[in-house]
């Protein structure tokens, strides 16, 4: 039963800005412990859809249930029970590592004891002991992103949203990052991730591809490649998303 537990349920979710439909009746579900890739060209509607799922943008119509909470009527409950990190914003550059951990732990309502214990565990696991007092802004991007991922998981959410978490990160760290994702999914956390690296799409259990506000394909990488007669996810993407701007 655990295996089929649905963490995100989306039905006909739509967002319009005036006459422009950014997200057009998308529907999908994600399971517990699933790595769900959310792909699409720039401007296809990914960010708008993600904003609705994390409770910071109200749907025009349709519904989305995240962790059992309705994003329309219970956005605050949604925000408390999810983890989130993006390439653009993850942590405060002018706070040090432990200060960031304390800040985000506090935001998510952890006790001082929990913050201290879990914070120490993160610093230990990532080997950041020597730089724990350094401002986060001075860390290499890859370290920062690994740390941000751990901080997003501090309150042990059932689902974590990752918006282009590996953009610009060096190839070795990018892989270490994905090994962290695998380990977390293995523990039962659902991972909702966007990326422009098509090799990363292959690491997902299932992948959806948005084109002009609609989900045009959704399946495992293996089945998508079969369906589009392609040898890689890059080819699938090129076939689906080409010639639309």
């Amino acid at each position: 039963m655990k295996e089929t537990e649905k963490v995100i349920v989306v039905n006909d979710l739509t967002k319009k800005f005036g006459s422009f439909t950014a997200v057009d009746q998308i529907s999908f579900e994600t399971r517990k412990g699933e790595i769900f890739g959310f792909l699409g060209a720039n401007g296809a509607g990914k960010t708008t859809a993600m904003k609705m799922l994390i409770g910071i943008s109200k749907p025009t119509s349709g519904e989305a249930i995240v962790n059992g909470f309705d994003v329309k009527t219970q956005p605050e409950k949604v925000k408390k029970t999810i983890g989130y990190m993006s390439q653009k914003f993850s942590m405060y550059d002018d706070l040090n590592i432990m200060e960031n951990i304390t800040f985000f732990g506090g935001i998510y309502g952890l006790s001082r004891k929990e913050i201290k214990e879990r914070g120490e565990a993160v610093i230990e696991k990532l080997g950041l002991r020597e730089v724990a007092k350094k401002q986060v802004g001075s860390l290499p991007l890859g370290w920062k992103q690994k740390l941000a991922f751990s901080v997003a998981l501090l309150h042990e959410p059932k689902v974590v949203f990752l918006d282009e978490p590996t953009g610009g990160v060096d190839p070795i760290t990018r892989r270490q990052f994905w090994e962290m994702i695998y380990a977390e999914a293995d523990k039962g956390t659902t991972i909702f991730v966007t990326t422009h690296y098509m090799d990363e799409a292959e690491y997902c259990n299932r992948v959806s591809i948005m084109v002009e506000g609609k989900i045009e394909a959704l399946d495992s990488p293996k089945n998508l490649k079969k369906q589009f007669d392609a040898s890689s996810m890059d080819e699938v993407f090129q076939k689906l998303a080409r010639n639309v701007e």
Binding site: G40, N42, A44, Q87, G167, H196, F237, Q238, A241
Partner: peptide
């Protein structure tokens, strides 16, 4: 091409 999707990159 940083942050640009694979189609636009090509």
């Amino acid at each position: 091409t940083t942050g640009v999707d694979p189609v636009s990159r090509r």
